[in-house]
Design a protein around this nucleic acid. Structure first.
Length: 304
DNA sequence: AAGACGAAAGTGGTTGA
DNA sequence: TCAACAACTTTCGTCTT
């Protein structure tokens, strides 16, 4: 409710570019100035380069929902031509062949349509979340695998796409929470989570265990914290891990707490609220982690 | 007035029968 | 499928700066 009011515009000299997320943010308030940098590339380049053979699908309107558009001329099974004359045996073979191809083409186009819609969706979500191209490609690859395995049947394309994106993010260590992705999707978080689990189980997509350190960079850059603070935070997390404090804990919360401590230590104090906000956890969680870290690691935090 | 702290009750997800 | 459980959130009162 009482959010950083957009009625007070961020002074131009406070605007910084956050290269982690591809966003322009205000260094004062953290307000996102421009978070939609439109990908100006042609839409059909969304397909991965290794799929050369699939390029038959060049540039068809992606939102064309009419089934079999352009292929709706059905080749009749009767051995008559358009004038009602019987076709010669030689022509009959041709006709049979045409029909065979028509059926093949239809199957092909059905898979393509699914893919086309999915890629469209992928592009949309990726743009909203500023997901870099390599991660998109990864997501596309995963999705394609899912289609081949028939995992999409019975599920919404959108949720499987979202799950693919999430998986790709995890694989490439582009820390994005499930919530962030779910936010731009009609499918709910639960559904996406289920698809995600299915994906990593069925396709053998290996996903490294989510690491708090991956969150550190992103949170820090959103808050304009120094490299030294980041290094300190990572060291704190490392020590916490050795002590077994990290198991079962929300990595974002842990990263937030470590950064909080590191920031205070380096005289770059941010409020718990600020950190919690960008980390996507609550103040309380930051506090709990922070308390644990201080106690267990015997860190002394100089106050003020 | 704003931030930090912590208690208590509530919520959503995981696990094991 | 259900209940127990841990982690996290929400809410709120109190203390500190």
């Amino acid at each position: 409710m009482t959010e950083t009011s957009s009625s007070t515009p961020c002074p131009p000299d406070k605007i910084v570019f956050d290269e982690e997320r591809g966003e322009f943010i205000c260094s004062e308030t953290g307000e996102v100035i421009e978070d939609r940098i439109v990908d100006q590339g042609p839409e059909w380049r969304a397909f991965t380069s290794e799929e050369k053979e699939k390029r038959s699908r060049v540039g068809g309107p992606l939102n064309d929902t009419i089934h079999d558009r352009g292929l709706s001329t059905i080749i009749d099974w009767r051995d008559k031509d358009a004038m009602g004359r019987t076709i010669s045996p030689k022509r009959r073979l041709d006709v049979l062949r045409w029909r065979k191809w028509q059926i093949r083409a239809r199957i092909q186009s059905s898979a393509d349509r699914n893919l086309a819609q999915a890629m469209n969706e992928l592009e949309r979500i990726s743009n909203l979340l500023n997901i870099p191209k390599n991660v998109r490609d990864e997501a596309a690859k995963i999705y394609r695998k899912a289609v081949e395995k028939g995992l999409v049947r019975g599920r919404s394309i959108e949720s499987v796409v979202a799950a693919s994106i999430y998986a790709a993010c995890r694989r490439t260590k582009m820390a994005r929470t499930l919530d962030e992705i779910a936010q731009y999707t009609k499918a709910n978080r639960k559904e996406i989570a289920r698809c995600y689990r299915l994906l990593i189980k069925e396709l053998d997509v290996t996903v490294p265990v989510s690491d708090p350190r991956d969150y550190v960079g992103r949170i820090a850059s959103l808050l304009n914290l120094s490299g030294q603070t980041i290094r300190d935070a990572i060291e704190i997390i490392e020590r916490a891990r050795q002590r077994g404090l990290t198991a079962g804990k929300d990595p974002a919360g842990l990263a937030a707490a470590a950064l909080y401590i590191a920031a205070v230590k380096n005289g770059e104090k941010r409020t718990q609220k600020e950190i919690a906000q960008v980390a996507g956890v609550t103040e309380v969680t930051v506090r709990n982690r922070y308390k644990e870290l201080i106690n267990e690691l015997k860190l002394d935090v100089p106050l003020t």
